[in-house]
Design a protein around this nucleic acid. Structure first.
Lengths: 226, 226
DNA sequence: TTGCAATTCAAACGACTGTATGAAACTATC
DNA sequence: GATAGTTTCATACAGTCGTTTGAATTGCAA
C-alpha cells in the first residue's frame, strides 16, 4: 500500500478495543483481527506493542489538549480579558464529555481511550504521563486569573475535582444510570458539563466568601437542614 | 498447618500487590513469592486466580460497606432524626480516604485495593459489582431524608460526584501533589473529607435555592468575577 | 506407632503472549 | 519487463501465564 493505511487501521483498531475492554484484556492478535491486517504488521510499523500504545496515547493526548486550549482561548477572546471561571472549567471538561457521552454512543473512541488510560495503571503510559502536568498548569493559570484572590491550594483542588467528576462520569456512566433508575440523563451532555462546572464554581465561591469572615481555612460545611 | 495461615498469607499478599501495581501487572507467581508459599497453594485453597480475586473483593467490599453504614448509623443516632447532609457524605467518603491517605502511608492496602478494583476493568470484579448498587441505595435514601425537597436526579448526581472525587483523589494523589507543588496537603485527610463534603453540600444547596426562583433546571452557573 | 487425611512441594502441562524470520507479493523507477 | 525497495504473509520462536499432577511432608486420631 502506498499510503500508511495499515498503520492507521492498527491505530484505530487498538484505540477502539482498548477503549471498550481496557488495556489488560486486549492482545495484539485481537487488534490485528479487528484491523484485518497481519500480526507482524504491528512490529513492522511500530516496533513493539508498547511503542504502538505510546504513539496512540501521545497523539490523542496532543489532540485533546489542543481541543481544550482552543476552547479556552475562545473564552478568553470572547470576553476580552481573562476567561470567566465557568468557561475555564467547561473548556477542561467539555471535550472529553462530549466525546464519550451523548445520544450517539461510541462516537469517539479517542475520548474513551484517554479516560481508560487515565484510570488504569499501564507502565508505558505512566512513563509518558508527565507531560499532562504541564498542560494542566495552563488551566491552573487561567483559574488564577479568573480568581486572583483564591488560595493556591483551592485552585488545584478545583482542577482536580473537575477532572475527577469528568472521568468517573464517563467510566461509571452505566452504574449511575442503573443506580438512578434513569433519573440521571447521561445523554444530556450539555447538562452534565453545566453540572460539573456549577459544582466547581460554587465550591470555589463558597470558600472565597468563607475566607473573608474567618482566617482559618474552612473545614466543615454548613448544614442546610431540610 | 492447622490454621488457614497460608490462605491468609495469600490474601494479604494479593491485596498488597494489586493495590500497589494494579491488576494487570501482578501474576500468581508474584503473589506466592510475596506470600512465601508454594505456587500450587493458590489453586489448592481458592480453586483459581479468579476465585481468589472474587473472595478478596467480596470480603473487602463487605467490610467497607459495614464501616460506611456504622458511620451513617452513628450520625443518625447522634442527631435523633435523619442524619445531616454532610454527615451522610462524610460517612460515604471518609472510610476509603482515611484508609488510603494520611501521613502513615500504605496503612490500609484494603482501601487502595478497593479503589483500584473500582477504576480498572477486571471481568471477575465487574461481574460481582452489582451488589455495590444496593449498598449505594442506602446512602441515596439517607440523602433524600436529609433533603426531601431535592429532585431525585440531584441526589444521585451528588452521590456520584462524591465517589468520583474520593476515588480520583486516591488514585491521582501523586499527580495532584506534583501539579500543586505541595500546595495541596494530601496528608490532611480530615481536611480532604471536609473539602469533598463541602463541595457536595454546597452544590446541592445551590441547586435547591435556584430551583425556588426558576421552574426550569439550572443549567449555567453564575459567574462570580474576581 | 500406625494410619489417614490435609497440606505442601517441585515439576511439568497446554495455552497464550509479544516478537522475529524469511519468503512471497506488491509498488515504483528505469 | 527487469530491478530494487517496501510491505505483507504464514509460521515459528522463546517466554510467561494459570493450572494440574503425583509424590513428599505434615498434623492428628486411634
Amino acid at each position: 500500500m502506498s499510503t500508511d493505511q495499515t498503520r492507521l487501521a492498527i491505530l484505530a483498531a487498538a484505540e477502539r478495543l482498548y477503549a471498550d475492554r481496557g488495556f489488560g484484556e486486549v492482545t495484539l492478535r485481537d487488534i490485528v483481527a479487528e484491523a484485518e491486517v497481519n500480526l507482524a504488521a504491528v512490529n513492522y510499523h511500530f516496533g513493539s506493542k508498547d511503542e504502538l500504545i505510546a504513539e496512540l496515547y501521545v497523539s490523542r493526548s496532543v489532540a485533546l489538549n489542543r481541543e481544550r486550549l482552543t476552547e479556552l482561548k475562545a473564552a478568553e477572546d470572547a470576553g476580552g480579558g481573562p476567561a470567566a471561571l465557568d468557561d475555564v472549567i467547561a473548556a477542561l471538561v467539555g471535550p472529553p464529555l462530549r466525546g464519550c457521552l451523548g445520544p450517539d454512543r461510541q462516537r469517539s473512541a479517542a475520548a474513551r481511550f484517554m479516560v481508560r488510560a487515565s484510570a488504569e495503571s499501564v507502565p508505558v503510559i505512566r512513563r509518558i504521563r508527565t507531560r499532562e502536568i504541564g498542560h494542566l498548569r495552563r488551566f491552573a493559570a487561567a483559574l488564577r486569573r479568573a480568581l486572583p484572590q483564591a488560595p493556591e491550594a483551592d485552585i488545584y483542588w478545583a482542577l482536580h475535582f473537575a477532572l475527577a467528576m469528568t472521568h468517573e462520569t464517563i467510566n461509571g456512566a452505566e452504574r449511575l444510570q442503573r443506580l438512578s433508575g434513569g433519573a440521571c440523563d447521561l445523554d444530556d451532555v450539555a447538562g452534565i458539563v453545566a453540572r460539573i462546572t456549577a459544582a466547581v464554581v460554587q465550591t470555589l465561591a463558597a470558600r472565597a466568601t468563607a475566607a473573608k469572615t474567618a482566617t482559618v481555612p474552612v473545614r466543615r460545611a454548613a448544614r442546610p437542614r431540610a
